[in-house]
Write a protein that binds this DNA or RNA. Structure first.
Length: 601
DNA sequence: GTTAGGG
DNA sequence: CCCTAAC
């Protein structure tokens, strides 16, 4: 029987969903986690190639089913330092002999960095942790966690009994991207966006931060290209931590979660082969080694000896802390014209990933490469003990219904043209097929991180795709996509319906800088107050996160600000000179508007 | 898609 | 910053 659990993906900086936001319209995660919650962070998804056919595997009896909004999250590039991290991606960061592909160097855990950013999310957590320029870090109230890196996220998976899926609070990528606020064109573009590594940051019209970089083939993962990297940390009640450590985490520095729509996409019977499991297993992160003094926490590591696992059976009662560094997702092949827009690529990939990981998602557990089927076994019985650091624990994501018991080399499942058209809203095509190991070698591969609601925040474009065939075959996840389900997919709205508050994801607040105000004032002086599109084009063309509506709104507030006393003003002070110009321009163009109206009468 | 204005 | 009527 499949139990439906509620999964709560909590991301640092997520804004509280509209329905529960503070009056100020902003907030962060405050919820105190359940004791049996699994917390995961760091989801990276890399996608390349065609969607293949999921080699089915049997479903555990009692698995967590992601019924609604599993999300991707990813890494924000906050500053030059992190950009350099990206640049420091090395081969050794790639999991060898596994399907875990390191998408980029932005994964601290894969770089031997384990200063997980973690914060409390209890009621004592204040909004102002999120406020302020460049405030990217949420901190635990007890300051228990020090030395954070900026790249880790926590996904909180709450195990609840109501069978409902609670949408996660929204991640606020914007905090991390605060440093990337482009200056208005009049002020020049922020050169921090460009580093010496030929990284090109692109913001598309969806405010998406896209990074493209040519990577050496050595940076490519031999084998798999569709890993979802995430860490899971389990609460540890056995630890007498008065501060509730181990219980409270807030994800930080993450992006908006991408709401996976419910899609009847996988109706596959299950087979059960270990190989299939390995297709999307999660790799336990051994780098997560936050061990405190009274540590009862075991870090599950890659490893070796089952015998060792049995050593600590006596330590019953203690919890196991573990972190999942990598969740594989089935490999995707994306066939998209060069002329396609970044936005369409993102949507296409997101659709594909969503299709694979849509609801009906389950988690499998692997130990020593073998699937752990008995859900009634305790961890310790299974060999997962608290302080055993030598066994290998793996997690995998799999569709709920696997119907393909046959070899995935059989019966390729190619989308028909019509289906493809339905599948992808753009003119781009998404090919779903299986058993075409060589396909990816001919095309450029795209690794994707931070897939959030259509956002593709970090994209690494790899020109060379000389993948290791052996690993490719080992790691390829194949997904059968019956056309009938594709048809169903087509009618599922990709974006949230505005009427559904669960999906309300307010943009992050990004106060206008003085430079921006100056640019705005200058543009309005020139163009007037009724041509916001032109103002945008003229002065904020590079600032994709500023829409013309934003500019209009800002002008409105500027006028208001200029009219109130300085004591009443808040935020970064706007020079009086600018405010004077605001009033002058406002008066002038108001007058012009009146004249124009009179003239037209 | 833009504009304007209330929330 | 959101929402949406109106154009």
């Amino acid at each position: 029987m499949v139990m439906q659990k509620r999964l709560n993906y909590g991301f640092n900086g997520y804004q509280v969903p509209r329905a529960s936001r503070s009056p100020r319209g902003r907030g962060t995660i405050r919820k105190k986690p359940d004791s049996n919650r699994i917390q995961a962070f760091d989801i990276l998804a890399s996608v390349a190639g065609n969607i293949l056919h999921e080699n089915a595997s049997s479903i555990p009896d009692n698995v967590v089913s992601v019924k609604d909004h599993p999300t991707f999250s990813g890494i924000n590039i906050k500053d030059n330092k992190q950009e350099n991290q990206l640049g420091s991606l090395k081969e050794e960061q790639i999991e060898h002999g596994t399907c875990s592909e390191v998408v980029s160097g932005c994964v601290p855990s894969l770089q031997g960095k384990h200063e997980n950013q973690r914060v409390t999310c209890d009621s004592s957590f204040h909004d102002n942790h999120l406020e302020g320029e460049g405030q990217n870090v949420l901190e635990r109230e007890d300051e228990h966690v020090k030395g954070r890196s900026t790249n880790e996220k926590i996904i909180q998976i709450q195990n609840r009994s109501n069978g409902l899926i609670e949408p996660s609070e929204r991640a606020s990528k914007d905090y991390s991207s605060e440093n990337y606020v482009e200056k208005p064109s009049l002020e020049g573009y922020d050169q921090r966006n460009l580093d010496s590594r030929k990284l090109v940051n692109i913001r598309d019209d969806d405010e998406n931060f896209v990074r493209c970089t040519q990577m050496n083939s050595k940076n490519r993962i031999s084998g798999t290209t569709s890993d979802m990297v995430l860490k899971v940390k389990d609460a540890s009640p056995c630890v007498n931590d008065e501060n509730d450590s181990g219980d409270n985490y807030v994800v930080e520095n993450s992006e908006r979660m991408y709401p996976f729509k419910k899609r009847k996409f996988f109706y596959q019977t299950s087979s059960s082969t270990s190989d299939s499991w390995s297709q999307s297993q999660g790799i336990v992160d051994s780098s997560y080694t936050r061990v405190n003094g009274t540590n009862h926490n075991a870090v599950i590591e890659e490893s070796s000896s089952i015998a060792d696992q049995q050593v600590h059976h006596g330590s019953k009662g203690c919890n196991v802390k573990l972190s999942i560094k990598s969740f594989k997702v089935p490999e995707l092949f994306i066939d998209i014209p060069e002329t396609a827009t970044i936005g369409s690529l993102k949507r296409t990939v997101m659709e594909a990933v969503t299709a694979i990981l849509g609801d009906e998602l389950h988690v499998g557990i692997l130990l020593q490469g073998k699937k752990v089927r008995d859900d009634n076994k305790t961890l310790i019985q299974t060999g997962i003990s608290q302080d055993d650091k030598h066994h290998r624990l793996g997690f995998m994501l799999e569709p709920r219904h696997n119907r393909t018991s046959s070899s995935y080399n059989e019966e390729p499942c190619l989308l028909t043209t019509s289906t493809r058209q339905k599948f992808s809203r753009q003119s781009t095509s998404l090919m779903l097929q299986q058993g075409t190991y060589n396909v990816s070698r001919e095309r450029s591969m795209v690794k994707i991180e931070n897939c959030n609601e259509g956002d593709l925040n970090v994209v690494s474009t790899i020109g060379d795709t000389s993948a290791n065939n052996h690993n490719m075959s080992k790691c390829r996840a194949l997904v059968a996509v019956p056309s009938i389900n594709m048809n169903a997919l087509a009618v599922v709205p990709y974006r949230r319906k505005s009427g559904n508050p669960d999906f309300g994801q307010r943009r992050i607040r990004r106060p206008f800088s003085v430079l921006e105000v100056e640019a705005l004032v200058q543009a309005v002086e020139k163009l007037g107050t009724g041509r916001w599109r032109d103002v945008k084009q003229r002065a904020f063309d590079n600032a994709k996160h500023r829409t013309y509506v934003d500019l209009k709104d800002k002008w409105k507030t500027l006028v208001h600000t200029a009219r109130i006393s300085p004591q009443q003003r808040r935020g970064e002070p706007v020079p009086q000179e600018l405010l004077d110009r605001v009033l002058a321009a406002h008066a002038y163009w108001s007058q012009q508007q009146c004249k124009h109206q009179i003239k037209s009468l």
